[in-house]
């Protein structure tokens, strides 16, 4: 059954965006209702495409939920000339620890980080999804990574500084 197979992973995905169980459940209700409603229009194109399709719906619903409560365009766009912070140490952590650190990020930074790093969207796609400029998207990702690096240093991870 579709729900039994994908609901756990989709719930966790939604939770990564909204950080609240009740809100994530609401998103799952709306998203799966849409999935069942438009399943006839789904075209199978290979292994994993159904999960990707459902994930896309869940991510979109999560973003719609966040857009009602948060203005993503409030963060100013920065001209970033310095290199992007290195998160090698973050990649070495346990998945739970990484997720916990991501969840500590402010909404705007966390959302862009989730979309870029975890879902794999590029800045052009993110700018359209959040109705922001590409520069803002880049800026938010840069700031998210900078915060994560700062926390890692604070926790005692060696970055050679």
């Amino acid at each position: 059954m579709l729900y039994m197979r994908f609901s756990d992973v989709m719930f966790r995905t939604a939770l990564r965006y909204v950080r609240n169980n009740d809100d994530a459940e609401d998103i799952i209700i709306i998203a799966f209702s849409k999935v069942f409603k438009s399943i006839k229009s789904f075209n199978y194109s290979g292994k994993g495409c159904l999960e990707a399709w459902i994930r896309k719906i869940v991510v979109n619903e999560s973003l719609m939920f966040l857009r009602k409560r948060y203005n993503f365009s409030l963060t100013e766009s920065l001209d970033i000339s310095i290199p992007e912070p290195d998160l090698t140490e973050l990649g070495r952590l346990e998945a739970e620890d990484i997720l916990e650190m991501i969840n500590q990020l402010p909404t705007g930074y966390r959302t862009v980080f989730n979309l870029y790093v975890i879902e794999g969207y590029d800045h052009q796609e993110i700018s359209m999804m959040l109705n922001i400029s590409e520069g803002t998207s880049r800026s938010q990702l840069f700031k998210a990574k900078a915060i994560l690096k700062k926390v890692l240093i604070k926790e005692g991870y060696n970055y050679g500084t």
Binding site: V9, R12, E94, L99, Y116, I118
Partner: peptide, 15 residues
Amino acid sequence: TDETIRKKIQLLERQ
């Protein structure tokens, strides 16, 4: 690094 983080998170979310 991004790819490593992505894989780890996606694996965790399947638990």
